[in-house]
Design a binder for these strands. Structure first.
Lengths: 213, 213
DNA sequence: AAGGCCTCGTGAACAGCGTTCAAAATATCT
DNA sequence: AGATATTTTGAACGCTGTTCACGAGGCCTT
């Protein structure tokens, strides 16, 4: 009556997610997982090649859920007949902020892990999930009438999303009291307001010609 | 004729910086430092309480240099009589991008370290250095005529900087080939263009009234 | 039922890590 | 010079991820 191989894998991932959320990447230990799952250390390595794979699997589940949350938020607004671009972008940003707040320990771990594999070979499932998130934003931008071609709209979506992301992660560097949460939201509001206004006035085409290097 | 205590500390920090830049935080090992510095492991712990303190010291030196680089870039533009806000912001962003590119290994370590101490008590020297960077951006924004009061200008500065930061760090998740560098710069250009245009048209005051939670 | 095979769980063992601390070496003072 | 204070040392401790020879248990064939 023991658990299936796949069931045990999911149990391990659930335990790993809790560990990551409680103490970050440093808290993800093979022996702790084994003990809490009621198996031996070796069995953990039977299910996953190493702890990196466990960490990666947890992160992908998180990214997946985040994407689903974003899509759900968009569907909600659609149902309510909200078609204003600024409202919709703010709703997406709010969903993102809430998600990060709900995963105080594991979200930093997602980012740190993500960054660590910079040396590895080309794109993989990880990037695909991130692209899904970009696509959602691009879809919202498409509703606005900014005179952007597909390429430029995709660029704007990535820019906007990366910016929100930067605000949230920069903000969560400091103490996570409610004052900080307010500051983050003020920044997001300002960014989105300025961004939409800027797009409306053709700011996406304002080239200054500065050379990067 | 051995080195002074402070000289040895600097030697250790120089070695640590190289190690971090070459292999990230995981490459910062007490035994490696000791070997390369020609001292024993124990002596490293005589100079610094633990490796965290070494890492922190290296990061603060980097942030310090980054601030100096930004100020130097501003002084250059001032000397050339460039007063256009968009140009100046782009120059700052370019300085930031170049700095990150020049420290491919240690800059991620700065961020990861920064994030890790989220549980610690209040503001410290680390935050002070980050505030210095915000102040430089705020100074540039002051030159523009956006009708912003001090408080709102500071918020805009933090927002803009966090956004640039997000673009750069998100971008460097993927492979660091030159195509990626181009993508990053395109995003920065779009962000700055849209941001300035948005500020000019009062986007900083466009409230949508969406509640965060 | 007995034997052979094979898959899978096991936990002791290994190498490496950060960190400590009693002792040795060096420096400083009387 | 002798005594005292300081600093340097590296072996040792406890922890980590990871491996792998071993043995238990199921499954098929004889």
């Amino acid at each position: 009556m023991a658990l299936d191989k796949e069931e045990m894998s999911e149990k391990v991932l659930a335990i790993a997610e809790t560990l990551l959320n409680e103490g970050g990447a440093a808290n993800l230990k093979a022996r702790t997982i084994a003990e809490q799952a009621g198996i031996s250390v070796g069995s953990v390595y039977n299910l996953f090649a190493d702890l990196d794979e466990v960490h990666r699997a947890v992160n992908m589940r998180l990214l997946d859920r985040l994407g689903a949350t974003g899509l759900a938020a968009m569907a909600d607004l659609e149902r309510q007949g909200v078609r204003d671009v600024q409202h919709r972008i703010l709703a997406m940003a709010a969903a993102y902020v809430r998600f990060v707040e709900a995963h105080p320990g594991s979200w930093p771990a997602v980012l740190a892990f993500n960054r660590r594999r910079a040396t590895r070979p080309g794109p993989d499932a990880y990037d695909a999930l991130l692209d899904d998130l970009f696509d959602i934003v691009a879809g919202v931008l498409k509703a606005g009438d900014f005179g952007l071609d597909d390429k430029r709209r995709a660029l704007a979506a990535r820019t906007l999303w990366s910016s929100v992301h930067g605000i949230v992660t920069s903000g969560y560097v400091a103490n996570s009291d409610s004052r900080q949460a307010e500051e983050i939201w003020h920044q997001v509001e300002l960014l989105v307001g300025v961004f939409v206004k800027g797009l409306e006035h053709g700011g996406a085409f304002a080239h200054a010609g500065t050379k990067p290097v």
